[in-house]
């Protein structure tokens, strides 16, 4: 695990110029965009994208086959990818939060407590994104993974819209249902969302392990 983490950090080193550029863009945007959730989400997504990009680096010239001849299990490889993706995405989330709150406070447009609340609300979304992205990337190589992502997210929206329509046809008031959900206390809501995100991430990790265990090189 330690060796794999070092490898990924070393691979990240070759993308340091791109990472620096991303940070500069985020800083620039934060000065004229008032919606701080955008900056935080942007940097968190960039973090995940760079982390999952190490899978492509591993696959370069059949490198994955060689990796599994080293003292690395497929399960260990997947867990390391999840840890590294969390490290990168949470790193991006944290930097985004610091930038957003810093700029917001300097401009006097936002209180830091409000900024922290927004950032915390975005955290489950970051975990969910990692939970969807990693199995896709491990299952499909290169362009296929991007196509699969589009299909999955497209399918998710179609199913959501259809679900709402079905509920309406069944005479269930969706708006009232949403209002009743919002009646749950903020603390309880946060616990439910956080628990659901972590459960989704664990399920995703389990699926990814199964994917890797069935792969042939």
């Amino acid at each position: 695990m330690k060796g794999l983490l070092i490898k990924d950090l070393k691979l990240m080193k070759s993308t340091r110029n791109s990472l620096a550029l991303v940070l500069l863009i985020a800083l620039g945007m934060s000065t004229y965009i008032s919606d701080i959730s955008f900056i935080i989400t942007y940097l968190a997504i960039i973090g995940i994208t760079f982390a999952t990009g190490t899978i492509s680096y591993d696959e370069f010239d059949n490198g994955s086959a060689f990796l599994f001849t080293l003292p690395v299990s497929r399960r260990g490889y997947v867990i390391e990818k999840y840890l590294f993706s969390l490290l990168m995405s949470l790193g991006g989330w944290l930097i985004g939060t610091v930038i957003a709150i810093g700029v917001g406070t300097a401009k006097g447009t936002m209180a830091s407590e409000e900024g922290i609340m927004v950032a915390l609300m975005l955290l489950p979304m970051v975990l969910c994104l990692a939970a969807f992205l990693l199995p896709m990337r491990l299952k499909f190589e290169g362009d296929k993974s991007r196509i699969a992502m589009v299909i999955v997210f497209g399918g998710f929206f179609v199913i959501t819209i259809m679900g709402v329509k079905v509920l309406q046809k069944l005479g269930i008031d969706v708006e009232a249902l949403m209002k009743s959900l919002s009646a749950i206390s903020a603390g309880m809501g946060a616990v439910i969302v956080a628990a659901a995100s972590i459960a989704l991430l664990l399920l995703s990790c389990h699926i990814s392990i199964k994917i890797m265990e069935h792969k042939e090189f």
């Binding site: 330690k2 060796g3 490898k7 070759s14 059949n62």
Partner: peptide, 26 residues
Amino acid sequence: GVVLSNAGFSGYLTVRDIIPVMDGLY
């Protein structure tokens, strides 16, 4: 110890990068 004909460490790494990786793995 393994050598595969068409595979090895990622081409984006350097020999200097490989040393701590090997140290961490073996």
